[in-house]
């Protein structure tokens, strides 16, 4: 099984007629994802390589029965695009847009909770989600993933997600689902949401969790793991050597005072029984050991 998406998930792409949306949307379709439509205001009735384009999400949902949306629009339009998706009947929204103002993200998060409690947002500023062999929404290259499980991956970083997939696939270890939750300060989906879904998924036997400096999501995840997780978790936290007070590329990756350091996160995870590794390769090797011993 997979989490959040599967081979039957019907997906629309908001921004399909734009450069990024078209590039990744078509790649996702080539991978086998059911990309059933696109949305661009004013371009309804046209198509992109045979994929019908609609003016609104509501029209797209009515015509195609889509339940998921891939949001690839510029930062200034992203908040509205996400809310339109939720109002239009979409249940799972993946937003890859980088550079959305933090205040917009905070408002979107709280409006979704209050007005559309059944809707899940993944991202913003994330690589997306891939369930190898079934569904790929976002920018992850399908070539580096391997179908068949038994590992679930959840990560705050894009390239480190690819690195993790690669480390496992090379060793012949497949993945059930790989979720990139993104590096922004207000992620729609957090570590705990994914860990809980992996814990509940019978095909996922172990979980790789990749964190980074900033915030306290890793510490909260550690607390949750300690009390709820029965499956083994291997973790790597990037940014041990990051200087305090500087944003390391991701808006969310900043150490404030003594809070948010990689060391504090690793200590919390270790204390929760997680296998904490010092670099992505070591994490891959540890996971290979664990899977072989299953």
């Amino acid at each position: 099984m997979s989490i959040f998406v599967d081979e039957n998930t019907k997906v629309i792409v908001q921004g399909l007629t734009g450069g990024q949306g078209k590039f990744h949307g078509l790649r996702n379709r080539d991978y086998g994802t059911k990309i059933v439509g696109g949305v661009t205001p004013g371009k309804g009735g046209t198509d992109v390589d045979g994929i019908p384009v609609f003016n609104t999400v509501k029209e797209a949902v009515e015509a195609t029965g889509a339940t998921a949306s891939f949001v690839s629009v510029p930062p200034k339009f992203a908040a509205d695009a996400i809310m339109e998706a939720a109002a239009g009947g979409i249940k799972f929204i993946v937003c890859i847009t980088e550079g959305i103002p933090a205040h917009d993200e905070a408002i979107v998060f709280n409006r979704l909770v209050e007005e559309f409690p059944g809707v899940r947002l993944l991202g913003p500023n994330c690589p997306g989600i891939i369930s190898p062999g079934k569904c790929n929404i976002g920018i992850t290259s399908g070539d580096i993933a391997l179908a068949g499980g038994p590992v679930g991956i959840v990560s705050r970083s894009g390239t480190l997600t690819y690195q993790a997939l690669h480390e496992l696939s090379q060793q012949g270890i497949g993945q059930t689902t790989c979720v990139g939750i993104g590096g922004d300060p207000v992620p729609g989906t957090n570590f705990i949401d994914c860990l809980a879904a992996f814990e509940a998924d019978p095909e996922t036997k172990a979980v790789m969790m990749i964190g980074e400096i900033g915030g306290s999501e890793e510490e909260r995840a550690a607390e949750w793991i300690k009390h709820n997780m029965t499956k083994p978790v291997v973790s790597y936290v990037a940014g041990v050597t990051a200087p305090p007070g500087r944003k390391m590329g991701h808006a969310g990756a900043i150490i404030s005072g003594s809070k948010g350091t990689a060391q504090a996160k690793m200590d919390a995870l270790r204390e929760a029984g997680v296998h904490v590794c010092l670099n992505p390769t070591e994490a891959g090797q540890k996971m290979v050991e664990i899977v072989k011993a299953l």
Binding site: S155, R156, S157, G158, T159, L160, T161, Y162, Q163, G183, I210, E212, I213, Y236, A238, G239, V240, T241, A242, M248, G249, H250, A253, A262, L278, N279, P280
Partner: peptide
């Protein structure tokens, strides 16, 4: 490096093997 996470991770690995 390409990607913020990988760049951060590269700093860490350089540090782990005795560099800065």
């Amino acid at each position: 490096a390409n990607g913020a996470g990988l760049a951060m991770s590269t700093l860490d690995v350089v540090n782990q093997v005795g560099g800065s």
